[in-house]
Amino acid sequence: ITGDVSAANKDAIRKQMDAAASKGDVETYRKLKAKLKGIR
């Protein structure tokens, strides 16, 4: 179950990262990237 949750989280975070990148929001992008590392 835990694996599914983190996989879903990663997917959601990647989508947020894409949105931040397209807006040029480097700050948010970095925060999300750090979150991704924390999940692993």
Rank of each mutant, 00 (worst) to 15 (best):
G38H: 10
D18S: 11
M17Q: 01
R14H: 06
A7H: 10
K31R: 10
I13E: 01
K10A: 15
K31A: 06
N9L: 15
A7G: 08
K10Y: 15
S6K: 09
Q16F: 06
K23E: 06
Y29R: 01
S6I: 12
Q16M: 14
I1M: 10
I1A: 09
D4Y: 06
S22A: 14
K31E: 04
V5G: 10
R40G: 12
D18M: 15
N9R: 14
L36R: 03
K15H: 06
R40W: 13
T2W: 13
G24A: 03
G38M: 11
S6V: 12
A8R: 11
G24R: 03
G3E: 09
V26P: 03
K23S: 08
S6L: 13
M17S: 01
K33S: 05
R14F: 06
S22R: 14
A34F: 03
K23W: 03
K23A: 13
E27S: 04
D11G: 06
I39F: 13
A20E: 02
I39A: 07
T28L: 15
R40Y: 12
L32T: 00
D11W: 05
R14V: 05
V5S: 11
A20C: 02
I1E: 09
D18C: 15
G3I: 10
A34P: 00
L36A: 02
S22D: 06
A20Y: 02
N9V: 14
T28V: 05
V5Y: 10
A8W: 09
R30D: 03
K35S: 06
L36T: 01
A12V: 08
A7W: 12
K10N: 07
K35F: 14
T2N: 10
Y29I: 03
G38L: 12
K15P: 01
R14L: 13
A19Y: 11
A20K: 02
M17F: 02
D11P: 04
D4T: 11
K10V: 15
N9S: 12
Y29G: 00
R30Y: 06
M17K: 01
I39Q: 06
K33E: 08
K31G: 00
A12R: 07
M17C: 03
G38A: 14
R40F: 13
K37T: 07
D11K: 12
K37W: 03
R40C: 15
V5F: 11
G24M: 04
A12E: 13
R40I: 14
T28K: 06
A19E: 14
D25P: 00
I39Y: 08
A8P: 09
S6H: 10
Y29N: 00
K23Y: 04
G3Q: 11
D4M: 12
N9D: 14
G38E: 13
S22T: 07
G38W: 13
A20D: 01
R14N: 03
M17D: 00
G38N: 12
K33T: 02
D25M: 02
Y29A: 02
K15E: 06
V26G: 03
Y29T: 01
K35W: 11
K31V: 02
T2R: 12
E27D: 08
L32G: 01
K35Y: 13
I13C: 00
D4H: 13
R30N: 07
V26N: 07
D18E: 14
K23M: 10
K37N: 11
T28W: 07
A21N: 04
I13A: 02
D11F: 03
D4A: 12
A12M: 12
Y29E: 00
K31L: 04
A34Q: 07
M17G: 01
V5H: 09
A19M: 10
A8N: 10
R40D: 11
A8V: 09
A20L: 02
G38T: 11
R14D: 02
I39G: 06
D18H: 14
Y29M: 05
L32N: 00
G3P: 09
A12H: 08
K35N: 01
R40V: 14
K33G: 01
R14S: 04
A12W: 14
A20Q: 02
L36K: 02
N9C: 15
D25Q: 01
R14E: 05
R40T: 12
R30W: 06
T2E: 08
E27W: 04
R30F: 07
K15Y: 05
G24K: 03
Q16D: 03
N9F: 15
V26Y: 15
T28N: 04
A8K: 10
E27H: 05
I39V: 06
V5P: 10
R14M: 09
A19T: 06
S6M: 12
A20R: 01
L32K: 00
I1D: 08
K10D: 08
T2F: 12
M17L: 04
A19S: 05
L36C: 08
G3K: 10
Y29H: 01
I1G: 09
I1L: 09
T2M: 10
G24S: 03
A19N: 05
I39R: 06
G24Q: 04
K15D: 04
Q16W: 08
G3N: 10
V26L: 14
K10M: 15
A34H: 05
D18A: 15
A19K: 07
L36Y: 05
K10E: 14
A21P: 01
L36V: 01
I39K: 06
A34E: 06
V5R: 12
A12Y: 10
K37L: 13
S6G: 09
V26A: 07
A19P: 02
D11I: 11
D25C: 11
D18G: 05
D25G: 00
I1S: 10
K35T: 05
V5I: 12
S22V: 09
L36P: 00
M17P: 00
R30M: 11
A34N: 06
A12I: 08
